[in-house]
Design a protein around this nucleic acid. Sequence first.
DNA 1: AGTCGTTGAGTAAGCGCTTTCTCGAAGCGG
DNA 2: CCGCTTCGAGAAAGCGCTTACTCAACGACT
Lengths: 342, 342
Amino acid sequence: MKAPIGIRDVALRAGVSVGTVSNVLNRPGVVAAATRERVLAAIDALGYVRNEPARQLRSGTARTIGLVVLDVGNPFFTDVARGVEEAASEAGHAVILCNSGESAARERGHVELLAAQRVHGVLITPVRSGPASVRWLRDRGISVVLLDHPTAEADLCSVAVDDRHGGELAVTHLLAEGCERIVVVTGPPGIHQSAERLRGARDAVRLAGRAPDVLEVLPAPALNVACGLRAGEQLLARAVRPDAVFCANDLLALGLLQATVRAGVRVPDDLAIAGYDDIDFAAAAAVPLTSVRQPRHELGRAAAALVIAESQAPGAHEHRQVVFTPELVVRESSRRPRSSVW
Amino acid sequence: MKAPIGIRDVALRAGVSVGTVSNVLNRPGVVAAATRERVLAAIDALGYVRNEPARQLRSGTARTIGLVVLDVGNPFFTDVARGVEEAASEAGHAVILCNSGESAARERGHVELLAAQRVHGVLITPVRSGPASVRWLRDRGISVVLLDHPTAEADLCSVAVDDRHGGELAVTHLLAEGCERIVVVTGPPGIHQSAERLRGARDAVRLAGRAPDVLEVLPAPALNVACGLRAGEQLLARAVRPDAVFCANDLLALGLLQATVRAGVRVPDDLAIAGYDDIDFAAAAAVPLTSVRQPRHELGRAAAALVIAESQAPGAHEHRQVVFTPELVVRESSRRPRSSVW
DNA sequence: AGTCGTTGAGTAAGCGCTTTCTCGAAGCGG
DNA sequence: CCGCTTCGAGAAAGCGCTTACTCAACGACT
C-alpha cells in the first residue's frame, strides 16, 4: 500500500498546477488541447482515481443516489433496481441499494444513513404511506421520489403503476372464466399496493354486476412465498373451497400454487390462480401463472430520471406524478376448461 | 430548502466549540457528562445529521463497503447480499451493491466507481478468475475479499463454498438413484463456480467406478431461467434422452424443469433433476427440486466481517481463506421410484 | 502557599478537491 | 507601435469535519 495518488501528484508530473488538472477533469473545454493531453497522460501513467468524497465536499453535489425498497428478495424489486441502476449510471451516478424488509425501523435507519452520505436524491418505496421518512429527507434538502407508490401531494415526484386497475383486470378475467367464489390474498394492511389491488378487485365485481360476497379477503402477514404456502394450507383446510384465488403478488401466488398442487388440487380446473407482478418465475412455474405485468424496468428508469432532474434544478422543478398502466398476462393457471364455464 | 445544518450551528446552540461537538460524536468519553447532554440536545433540536463525506475526507476512513455480484436477479446473491448488509450495518457501515451481470466491462466500471468513492473495502465475485480487478483495487490500497470464489494466493482473503464437493454430492446421489445417462448443464466456461461443480460431478463418477461417459456436458450461455428453458428444449429434441440432469444452479434447473414438465416428461420418473444453491423457489417448485444448499447468509456475513477486519488493521492483517461445506437437500425431483432402480 | 498532575474545553491546521480571481502572453485593429 | 481583448494557466480560499495541541481551572500534594 503506497501513498495514495492525488491531484497534486498528477499536476507535478504533467508540469501544471492542480487547478488545471481539475479543469481537465471537470471542464475540459477551457484547457488547451496540448495541456489536456499532457495531463491525461499523467493521470493514466499514475493510475489516478478521483477522490469523490472530496469533490463532493467542495462542490456540494453528490453523484450518488439512494434506493430503498421493501424486499430485495422479490424479483420485482430487483428488476426495478436494475432499471434504476441503468439510468443512474448513464447519468454518471452510483446507487446505494437499501432493503427495508417491510420494517419501518430499518427504513428509518437507511434513510438516516443516506442523509449522512449527502446523497443526491432518494428513491423510496415507503413501508407506510405516511410521509414520515419522506418529509424528514426533504426537510434536509434531499430530493425524494416515491417509487411504486402514488401520491396526492403536488410537491412530490412519484412513479407508480395503477394498482387499482391491475386488480380490476385480474378479477374481471377470473369472473369471465366463470369463477364464483374468489378469495383475494392481500398483504399486511399498511402496504398501499396490496390495498389498491383489492379495491380494484371490488370494482371488478361491481362492474360485472355481481354481489359483493363473490369476493372474500384473506390477509397474509407478508408478501412472500412462505406466507403464500400458509395461505394455501388455510384454504385447503376449509370445508367449502373457493374456485379462484387472486394474490397480491406473485410470491404469494407461487407459494399458494405449490401448496394446492401438492395437495392434489387441479389448477386451473379445481382452482384458478392469478398473481401480480409477472416475475420471471411466474411464467416458469409448473403451472404457468396468470399475472398482472408491470413495467418494472421502466418504473426504475423513470424514477431515477426524475430524481436526477429534480436535484439538478432544485428551485424551478415541476413535480410530476407518473402512472404506468399494468397489463394482464393470461396463462394456464386461470384458463378454465369450457365445461365449467357452461 | 433551508441552509444545511452543520456542526457549527450545533456548537453555537450548545454554547461550545466545534471541536467539542465533534468529540461528543466520536469520543464521547472525553467530554463531561453535562456538556455532552447539552450538545446532544442541540443536535436533536436542530435535526443535525453528520456530513459523512467530510468526515471521511478528514479522517481518511470510510464507513462504506462495496459489493459486486454476478447477478442481482439470482436469489442466491440477494441472500448473500442480505448477509453482507446485516454484518455491515452491525459494524456501522453502508453497502453499495453493484451488479456486474456477468460482464467484465460492467464489473470494471463498478470497481472504478467504488475506488473513486474511497470505500473501506470491496467484496467481489469476479466475472473471470483472473485477478485484474482485484489487483487494480489493491494497488490503490483498497481491501478486497473474494466472495463465493476461492483463491490460492495467500495475500488475499476469500470466502467460498466447496463447489467441487457440492457437485460430487449431487451426482453421487443421482447415481445412487440408478441414473445411467446424466447430463450436466454448466454455465459459461469462464465462471469458476460452475466449472468446479462439473469437476465434482466427474469425481463422483470416478469414485462410483463408472465409465466417464455416464456424464455428458451441456454448456449454457448464462446461469438463468431462460437458458434453462432452452437447455430443456434441446434435450427434448434428442432421440435418446438422458435419465437425469444436474444443473449448475437452480435458475437453470427451474427453467429446465418447466420445459420438460410442460412437454409431458414425468419428473422424477422419466427424468431426475438436481439443481444447485437451494434458493427458496427450488422448494416451492411444483416438483420440489433437489438441490445443493449453500450457507448463503453466512457467506455474506463472513465476507463482510473479513473485509472490515482487514481494513481496520491494514498492516498486520493475516489473510484467511474460508471455505464452507455445502449440503445436499433431496426432494421429489430426484427420488426415483423403486421400479426403475431395480 | 507553591507546584504539578488532571480534566475538559477551545484553537487551528489541514484532508483533496473545485472554483473564482488574477495575471501574463499573445493576437490585432487603429 | 500601443492599448485592447481573449485565452489559458496559476494562486488561493475554503467545503465540513477531525484531531493534534494548547491552556485554563482545580485539587492534591509537598
